[in-house]
Design a protein around this nucleic acid. Sequence first.
DNA 1: GCTTTTTGTGTAATCGATAACACAAATAGT
DNA 2: ACTATTTGTGTTATCGATTACACAAAAAGC
Lengths: 342, 342
Amino acid sequence: MSKKTTIYDIAKALNITAATVSRALNNNPRISEDTKKLVLETAEKLNYKQNRLALALKSGKSKNVGVVLPLINRNLFSNVIRGIEEELNPMGYNVIICQTHDEEKKEADIIQNLLDAQVDGIIISIARYTKNTKHLEQILKKNIPLIFFDRKLEIKGSSSVTLDDFRGAYEATQHLIEQGCTRIAHFTVDRSVDIYKKRFDGYKQALINNGIDFNEDYVIALESKIESGKEAAKKLMALKNPPDAIFSASDLGALGAIQYLRGIGIRIPQDFCVVGFSNEPFTQFMELTISTVDQAPILMGKTAAKVFLEQMKSEKVTIERRMVLSPSLKIRKSSSRTNHAE
Amino acid sequence: MSKKTTIYDIAKALNITAATVSRALNNNPRISEDTKKLVLETAEKLNYKQNRLALALKSGKSKNVGVVLPLINRNLFSNVIRGIEEELNPMGYNVIICQTHDEEKKEADIIQNLLDAQVDGIIISIARYTKNTKHLEQILKKNIPLIFFDRKLEIKGSSSVTLDDFRGAYEATQHLIEQGCTRIAHFTVDRSVDIYKKRFDGYKQALINNGIDFNEDYVIALESKIESGKEAAKKLMALKNPPDAIFSASDLGALGAIQYLRGIGIRIPQDFCVVGFSNEPFTQFMELTISTVDQAPILMGKTAAKVFLEQMKSEKVTIERRMVLSPSLKIRKSSSRTNHAE
DNA sequence: GCTTTTTGTGTAATCGATAACACAAATAGT
DNA sequence: ACTATTTGTGTTATCGATTACACAAAAAGC
């Protein structure tokens, strides 16, 4: 196991001091061209690699960025990570991944740990029910950039990259209306959670703007699961005036509904239209492809990373960025009465 | 922005030296109980946090582990990462994620970078066509544990956690035979890649063991895409003696085939059975659920992490672990002639 | 009672790179 | 020609924690 070469080794080989070597490597203008060339050559020859840990200790910058999210293997999150990694790795940052499993306690622990590890920034999608913001304010107190994505909290000094959930929902609902649907139901998940509230709001606003009465009976809260979607659809169809469309805040809810409805002989999209949310891969794999709202997750990751990089460049000036990405409605068979190809 | 407290601050407060504080914090037996208590108390009071960068520099251990894989947002990989994270985080390790995009050059760069960052171990699924092993041997030369998962190379001193692809394929094929299929085709991806070769071998062996002739015309190489699956199925059905089943090395290939076959009026599973590989989420979301081979990806990640931890404990003794996980065949509608519930 | 061992803590080097400060030599300015 | 500046490099402290070595005081051994 060959010992690593340090600037001292180079210094000794050239009979100069480590300081000079360091300066030469950092292209300090005070170092003569001759010396620089010599140092660079011997560095190459001795296979010198800068010790990043030493640099980190000296500078306080670890060149690591923490990414905190509920679960890595969810489609949205793994895509966001992909975006972040693709943006940060070329800039010399390593991406550290941590899962909160949607637990506030774990989230707080993780952040404490990342701060201890002295990451240069934290990019986070908060746990579903995180209310306490103390651990998040800790981050900003240490002057470390804090960037939310998808699920955010309003914290002074932080930035965020989110989807325009309102608009996504609005467009989906508008689309259903344009398909001739008039009794449009909505599957939410939990309206106390920001993103779901916005999807609900967008849905409601679209109804209002089109002169359609909002009906609270048409709104059902359910977990993002096929079974829940089935049950909810069943409940809806048992109403004395059942709906003729569903805008679901989750794709799995939409899928469950579709399965139930087809099971009882309802034709989709002829009799009933469905639009989901998230553009999960499976929505385009079904033989009855499912219309849905794409969240541009890779772009979301890249944008969050760019916001971070921007903050690193701009020194101490804390910029508060509020980036809102545009959703894109994917119109597929489950809601296409007119001939929309995809 | 409050300055961080160091052991020197504690030392000053107690009028002792930093060395004593360090020893007290590390529970050195030479330190009196009284001093320990005092140090611990003031550490608490001053909100002392160990500077991990300083420790890393001194010890050469960064407490970071690099995970290198083709693409994060692939189902298998994101699940493996989840497993790794869940195992390593509680043990105080941070997980750094890097994507190779299946490019050997990028893979080499990433590894160099991780070595520069002095990670304590590297867990990797190699790029599809990586042949040159120089960058991988570099890792072992530095005495850093190298653990492969899923896609591995045989390198002396490394460990691996893989799926028994042969067995998965064998069982899938055996199952098809038991369903009464006799002309079983196989979708491979690229037989020059280890895992696909093993799947092919398992398929072939199952045929042979059941006295069924192997027919090279029944083997088609295709990318893991729906379109490719459709085309391949079309090719198969154009043979003068078309098959009555497909064992596909990819779920998307299987899906494409199913779509094509149903399109031309072939009933599944009555006329034709299909089994895929990977247990992608969508396989159980279709109304015609797809039989497939589960790769236990979270377990794979956890196992890889455990192998790493084991190596860290065992000091210098390089252990070569070859863990092989058992696949589990998920029998679903696309191949269930008898009544198999799931 | 005197040597030996144990106990508890201080001193100082180390991990590797950086940078403020210092200083001689070379160059420029008038 | 003499001061002022620039150029190039060395000295040394620093980032924060660990640890080999040293040493006094206390305890143990005979």
